[in-house]
Design a protein around this nucleic acid. Structure first.
Length: 333
DNA sequence: GTCTGTTTAGATTCGT
DNA sequence: ACGAATCTAAACAGAC
């Protein structure tokens, strides 16, 4: 069977849904996120069918990005001027496509039922205060730096680090063995452009450890928006009132972290680490453990891309030499 | 003005 | 037949 790769369909409409096409585009990118214009470009480059009637399908594609919870929006940093946000795949939508095939989805991915938006208690019983002001996104550069700081702390000596699962693959795609030869597998479709996974597509993203899933990255609200809390105990979705993440103090935090002209305010509180605590449709989070810190503890896994960290000037913060996921327990209250 | 993002609505396709 | 997933169209607001 011929490999359904670039230009395989000529001017015929390829058998992929807009969701599939978008997922392909995102996963083909090095950082596992793309602006809308680049998603258009990817699709038009590979599928000549979509070089016509652009208004029609691009409208549909935008509709899919907004409507489907499997896509999350990541704000641009100030040093990344341009229109629109970046789009990435939700970390929990990994097995959305059957057997890695983009032809048919297993089922629709929903990060949170929209009709539950008024609830204020997380599924695991952790009660949270509504803190809708936390949804206001701080400057992206600050957040990126904050994320670096978090990661450097979590990867620091003494923290509990663990190696990545050997099957870790593409962002959002769980455990597809490298040998998968499904004709419509993303690897076959977008290869050779598909690069080996850079585990961390975005330095500010943190995801829970899920069995069979890569330990990357994203803090999201139920609407799919990426939020970046700075301080506080918890953040809630401005629409749902539900906790978008759990924040807590982190031990052994460095003093102010200065890089790219941005100074992080740490004061008495450590920078918050956004942690999705919503129940995963694919796997339950590990049960909360008890630590020295008050409140339940949520384990978090992060992965560091090689060279993704830059030590602050004059700082002794370690630079992680290679891809190293770390696990950190975060206290909640 | 154009592009991006959200939302609503109706039609179509597909699996059970 | 039914429900879910998908496609298409349209309106609208806001950012660039």
């Amino acid at each position: 069977m011929p490999r359904p790769g670039k230009d395989s369909y000529g001017n015929e409409k390829p058998p992929y849904s807009y969701i599939s096409l978008t997922a392909m585009a995102i996963q083909s990118s090095g950082e596992k996120m793309l602006p809308l214009s680049d998603i258009y470009k990817f699709i038009m480059d590979r599928f000549p069918f979509y070089r016509q009637n652009t208004q029609r399908w691009q409208n549909s594609l935008r509709h899919n990005l907004s409507f489907n919870d499997c896509f999350i929006k990541i704000p641009r940093r100030p040093d990344q001027p341009g229109k629109g946000s970046f789009w990435a795949l939700h970390p929990m939508c990994g097995d959305m496509f059957e057997n890695g095939s983009f032809l048919r989805r297993r089922k629709r991915f929903k990060s949170m039922p929209r009709q539950q938006k008024s609830h204020v208690v997380a599924a695991d019983g952790i009660q949270v205060k509504p803190m809708s002001h936390m949804d206001a996104a701080p400057p992206s550069a600050l957040l990126h730096e904050q994320a670096k700081l978090r990661l450097s702390q979590m990867a620091a000596p003494g923290t509990h680090a663990q190696l990545p699962p050997p099957h870790c693959g593409l962002l959002g795609v769980p455990a597809q063995p490298v040998t998968t030869k499904h004709p419509f597998n993303i690897e076959n479709i977008i290869a050779p452009e598909c690069k080996p996974a850079s585990i961390l597509p975005h330095p500010g993203l943190v995801a829970p450890t899920l069995p069979g899933h890569c330990g990357y990255t994203v803090c999201v609200t139920s609407t799919g928006a990426c939020t970046w809390p700075v301080h506080g105990l918890c953040s809630t979705d401005s629409l749902t009132g539900l906790p978008g993440m759990v924040l807590g103090p982190v031990a052994h935090v460095n003093r102010d972290f200065i890089s790219q002209g941005v100074q992080l305010k740490t004061s008495g509180n450590a920078p918050a680490i956004p942690v999705p605590i919503k129940p995963s449709p694919l796997a339950a989070l590990p049960p909360p453990a008890v630590s020295q810190a008050s409140g339940p503890v949520v384990p978090v896994a992060v992965s560091l891309a090689p060279g993704s960290l830059t030590p602050p000037s004059g700082s002794s913060s370690p630079v992680v030499p290679t891809t190293v996921p770390a696990t950190l327990a975060i206290a909640t209250r």
